[in-house]
Nucleic acid binder design. Structure first.
Lengths: 217, 217
DNA sequence: ACGAAAGTGTTAAAGCGTTCACAATCTCGT
DNA sequence: ACGAGATTGTGAACGCTTTAACACTTTCGT
């Protein structure tokens, strides 16, 4: 099954969760069918791109009709492995970490934050968003079955914790610290740098024509 | 001056804030020179890409030597308009919003969050991270001189507030809600969807070979 | 039952971004 | 003052992504 999946372009793969959520919305609104044009307006992705994306999975739609919402939904559920849950740990229960814990990921997602870690004693033993908080010193004791970590710690602590996560066998890290962490090539790291995002937006505003539009990602 | 700037690829523009921060770090460490190779290891961007990026601004380095940190720094300061501050409003003082307010943006940036808005009465009048909180009903009264908005509200409120921001003359929106907002083409919107980022990371882990590495953005 | 309208799936082209590879240039120790 | 070593800036190749465009299929109102 991976042979087929491996052929899907990365750009497409990044849009799948987005498609899935909107199709989910349509379904709960009771909508039965949808065209690439309609979907395009909702998710702000060119309709040709949507058709192309879908076509990597075969012929999901019908010419002259569009896509059956129910069918699309069940297809995406399978494809995104919605049934098989990925266990996630969150490191650093500050404001950003708390935001994540309170976000109801299970609603549409195949991921669950099983455990959170913090360095402050007064936090230990509490639950936030239903997730128990453990002490960062005990990281290694609670990492069984965890394959992904969300890193929302001060940037000075990032590399040290990353090293421990790698040691504990992590597969992927979502890094919200400004620090660019170094890990073995077998570990996938995605950086999301809030300050950079804001600064980049400002740069675009100042230097790019203000009347033709592309979109974020 | 825009004629020159408009030629810079978007991918490059997105990396500029990142470069700027690391050059800043080097400078405060007292480093006098840096090569594209060194910088590459720090920011996790291919050294050829860095040289290419820099070359869009002319010849910033010296062959056989590298780049003078001080010169690079002053150049980037100019280029990123570090001197001219952009005023930002933050809408929605939840956990995520609070994280932003406590982030010291002025440290390295040309942006300042001047005002925050929330719908909960008990929040009004407080300050978070030095930023005063106003009631969302009074949005229009406090938007003078604000050109960018950070949207950290519940997604159900996103479009309504976006409409009001547009009415108030906003230029750019950093949208953290899962909702894809609709705005005139003269307004730039960047979406950052935390759930999608996490889900995309998981998807990559499951479906892409685990031993060759690219990087986030 | 037919024909116009709708809308997919895909081929082909254009656009963008990254990376290779190396000539040109500068540095620096001796 | 020289030559080995370092490192840039960039032409060219490559690969990925988007977009245009349209043949083909299905729908649906009359």
């Amino acid at each position: 099954m991976d042979i087929e999946n491996a052929k899907i372009p990365q750009a497409t793969a990044k849009r799948l969760p987005l498609y899935y959520r909107f199709i989910n919305n349509l379904h709960s609104q009771g909508k039965m069918r949808v065209s690439s044009k309609e979907l395009s307006e909702a998710v702000k992705v060119d309709s040709a791109t949507i058709r192309r994306d879908f076509s990597y999975f075969g012929a999901l739609g019908k010419k002259g009709y569009g896509y059956n919402v129910e069918y699309l939904l069940s297809f995406f559920r399978k494809t995104l492995d919605q049934d098989e849950t990925t266990s996630v740990a969150l490191i650093g229960v500050g404001n950003l970490g708390t935001a994540f814990l309170n976000y109801n990921f299970m609603k549409n997602n195949n991921t669950k934050i099983e455990v959170a870690f913090d360095a402050r004693d007064e936090r230990i033993g509490q639950k936030v968003g239903g997730v128990p908080i453990k002490h960062i010193d005990d990281l290694e004791k609670h990492m069984e079955g965890i394959s992904v970590a969300i890193l929302t710690v001060p940037s000075s602590a990032a590399q040290g914790i990353a090293d421990r996560l790698v040691e504990a066998g992590i597969s992927g890290v979502l890094n919200f610290t400004p620090a660019r962490i170094t890990v073995p090539s077998s570990v996938r790291v995605h950086h999301i740098d809030l300050a950079v995002e804001l600064q980049a937006l400002v740069y675009f505003l100042k230097h790019y024509p203000l009347d033709e539009e592309e979109d974020s990602q």
